[in-house]
Nucleic acid binder design. Structure first.
Lengths: 327, 327
DNA sequence: CCATTTATACTCTCCGTGAGCATAAGATGG
DNA sequence: CCATCTTATGCTCACGGAGAGTATAAATGG
């Protein structure tokens, strides 16, 4: 076996262009979408006046990608990194604001924690992710800007195509992404929506990267392609909370079922049927009562819960389900 | 806005260690898990005597990661790359067979195509993925090796832990991954199973990377961490066929429903309830009749189908469902 | 005592899904 | 022509999950 492998390895090296030349050396940035939920809002950790995600180059000293990421996040924000999962690796040129940039890839991760006491001296801060994606919060109904600004401009864009078939395809795509034309809003399509808006040049980034000067949408932009990475994280997390018990990582030690529900709603950007939510949580045996009641409540006091120990072990396999209501 | 961004950018550069030094330059390999289904088997494209996946370094000339990948795959195998999606980015040292290796990351992709006429002169060939993962094919029932070899050795491993709690946790993990102790086999856990076997040192790779000399399992190994990447691809594809219509990419222009079913079964490594399968396929309007019948059939002749045009456009959003039977 | 707010318990209905039965439409061999 | 084999196709049934609504309990502040 060992011989075979050696064989194969040397074969590989014999392939003329297979070996990387110094020219092909690149730098890889590690980027973190670090999420917490506080006061009913999904927050992300930002640096540089809330315009960038924690990030830094993957260095020789780092033993692994994750270790490197942890090092950077802790250095820049003082916040420890808990649960982490890889998101995506980006490398398209032209998304950095500089079209002639050399190869630089971004390996992005999603991290989940609890917001803790801020650190002084750093420029790190938590910001609601809806500051960057105001059209993504549907908890109080569809945001006005959707119908008033986004939809008309998408319509213009669709109509601007010459080919009628292309017009149709464009509108179709817009309608699916944004739940127009009577279609349902799908909170998991956050990335598709962002990409569409970028293409249609409704975002400051579009203008930065590709020129043009159309008025852009409300919603904060970020450095390089960080807002795209954030959108990727949001989409991933919204999908994941539905089939894997990851909300845990975002909750305090003890919590009421309503608090848990509010966290889920904050992430999903839409409301949940309360009774069904509780039914699901209970029948999946994800939580157990602590025996105490929540203090300082209005209305009937709520039991406090904690997550069952076993759940963490099963995380890789067990599913969670969430009753996202339609209305 | 532009000013703000400049601000932020220079801020970033002022952070002392933020800038990458030449030392931090790395090389990135692009690796493809290129899948086709032929003769009832899921095949992957391999090179180097079926011991490596098509791959090569991301070079300065490549305009994007995907373009680079396409270039390498076509150069090495002569086979064009169709549908492609990113899998994962690996970078752990110690998985390459050389513990002192410098930083080298692998950005892996899953590609789907149809097997076409082989090219001469290359070392490229299609191999069934079950050559590498014989324990993953459950179409004729659970493979013998599972009960006869894997299960006892996992039991030994669990018992080898000192702490009784750890023993339990180990066995639990093994049982979940492999569907032991009356649990159900879950075909999507291909990666977890591979990782477990690697940890337990039942694979040639384990021995290569970490020493030891226990007898290893049947099943072909690969160069570096390519078998792990393959496992990642299998797991991803098995999960994806259930909620997204990607089987298309693997089918010929026209096909019978049974052929479609056989392809799905080949990928999933388990059987499907025929009538329910057809019901699902039809009610989702993924296919349409061509009007012709399949030639050269045994038994009652089957209608030929093709995929509906629209489906490709909707691929990003529409779901597919598959009735994987339990028995 | 009443209005308000939240917690909880049930119920009802619809539909997706697993599973099995039955029948149709060809081929083949006696 | 019939029996049999093989695959295609149609239909029914039962169970369980999920969405949605109703009703009741337990606290607080006027």
């Amino acid at each position: 076996m060992t011989e075979n492998k050696k064989d194969a390895m040397s074969d590989v090296n014999e392939r003329p262009q297979q070996t990387a030349t110094p020219l092909d050396a690149i730098t890889a940035d590690l980027v973190a979408v670090l999420v917490a939920v506080t006061d009913g809002y999904p927050k992300i950790m930002t640096i540089d006046h809330a315009q960038a995600l924690p990030s830094g180059p993957f260095q020789f000293a780092h033993r692994s990608l994750q270790m490197g990421l942890r090092a950077w996040v802790e250095a820049q924000t003082g916040h420890p990194l808990g649960y982490v999962e890889q998101l995506y690796t980006f490398a398209d040129r032209g998304r950095t604001g500089d079209p002639d940039a050399p190869h630089r890839i971004s390996i992005s991760y999603l991290g989940l924690t609890r917001e803790e006491g801020g650190r002084e001296g750093t420029d790190a801060q938590w910001s609601s992710w809806y500051d960057y994606f105001p059209w993504e919060d549907h908890r109080d109904g569809s945001p006005d800007m959707l119908a008033k600004i986004i939809m008309p401009r998408l319509k213009d864009w669709a109509r601007a195509a010459e080919d009628p078939a292309l017009q149709k395809a464009r509108w179709r795509r817009a309608a699916i992404s944004f739940g127009l034309d009577g279609r349902e809003w799908n909170e998991e399509l956050a990335l598709q929506r962002y990409e569409l808006l970028y293409e249609v040049a409704l975002l400051p980034e579009s203008v930065r990267d590709k020129g043009g000067s159309e008025p852009t949408l409300p919603g904060r932009a970020m450095v390089a392609d960080h807002r795209r990475i954030l959108a990727t994280g949001i989409a991933r997390l919204r999908a994941k909370i539905k089939y894997r018990p990851v909300v845990f990582e975002l909750m305090p030690e003890q919590f009421t079922l309503l608090e848990l529900q509010r966290s889920v709603e904050a992430l999903a950007g839409r409301l949940v049927h309360k009774q069904n939510f509780r039914r699901l949580i209970e029948q999946q045996e994800l939580v157990e009562e602590t025996g105490t009641m929540a203090p300082d409540t209005i209305g009937r006091p709520a039991k406090l819960f904690r997550f069952r120990k076993g759940v963490l072990a099963e995380r890789a396999v067990v599913g969670t389900k969430l009753p996202l209501s339609r209305s």
